[in-house]
Design a protein around this nucleic acid. Structure first.
Ligand SMILES: [Mn+2]
Ligand SMILES: [Mn+2]
Ligand SMILES: [Zn+2]
Ligand SMILES: [Zn+2]
Lengths: 146, 146
DNA sequence: ACTTTAGATGCGAATGATTCACAGTCAAGA
DNA sequence: TCTTGACTGTGAATCATTCGCATCTAAAGT
């Protein structure tokens, strides 16, 4: 039970919060929308209001437990905080891959400093076509219809 | 007159499109929302519908004349295409600064390749506090109210 | 210049993600 | 167990962005 994680973050350990946290942990390297979280809970017969999901995700973000992203379409995607890393997104199938490059991080720090910025966070996303055999089979979103 | 720029992009050279393009050119290194563009046109007594602004900006984006960004708040900001560059954003005053670092770009290409991605574009944003004297005086958006 | 017509525009309505308001609940400390 | 401030579910409200459609207009003939 990670009731402690919540208390540590200054949040009451309520059932909705625990369930939401659980979903995020079960999808460690995914990037879920509030709706995604909502659906997974529904599928599990956990009746939690969508507004609560949004509220709790924001609280988790403030507490540093969760990271909020705004990739291409501007909609929010969330993931459990797991230390610094960046993303590669396939523009055809939507797959999101994670990576970490120390040299890159270092250079970012240098550049920020050179510009007189006290760096607090950063966002690097590389877009391109992946070479997965199941690419184009749509992993997440899709633009075209036909 | 940049009527030719539009024709070249396969777009009819209409008055609204020319006016919108003009606004973007007059704000070369800014990052404007559709509303921003709209207001500047209104201030200039150019009556162009907001829906048209959105449509035209999307067309410009498709034509490669304009870049669409989704920084922190998920809302769209546009800027004239001016070649690859990245952004530094002050989390206190909202100022957006641009920079270009060749070594960084190179490393991004390498990383994408290493992951088997055919890189098509990328997004790097560094967030931090700037050291401008007029910082905190709010350049654009603001979170707190008080 | 005049006509034609595929595209463009402007307006208001519709959408969809996210947030609000508020009445009812519940966690946690006394 | 009692108390109470924090939390939740519901539905309404927001707000950026997109649609639908009747009305224009650029640009390619004639
Ligand atoms: Mn991630
Ligand atoms: Mn820029
Ligand atoms: Zn792919
Ligand atoms: Zn600043």
């Amino acid at each position: 039970m990670e009731t402690s994680d919540l208390r540590k973050a200054g949040l009451k350990a309520t059932l909705p919060r625990l369930k939401i946290l659980e979903v995020l942990q079960q999808n460690k390297h995914d990037h879920l929308s509030a709706e995604d979280v909502y659906r997974r809970l529904m599928d599990n017969d956990e009746d939690i209001g969508l507004a609560t999901i949004y509220r709790v995700l924001s609280q988790f973000e403030d507490a540093g437990l969760v990271i909020r992203h705004h990739f291409e379409d501007g909609h929010a995607l969330f993931e459990l905080e797991q230390g610094p890393h960046d993303h590669l997104i396939c523009v055809k199938c939507g797959k999101i891959e994670e990576f970490f490059d120390n040299e890159m991080q270092q250079r970012q720090r240098d550049l920020a400093q050179k510009s007189g910025f006290d760096l607090s966070k950063h966002t690097l996303v590389l877009y391109g076509e992946c070479q997965a055999s199941n690419c184009e089979n749509d992993t997440t979103l899709k633009k075209d219809s036909s």
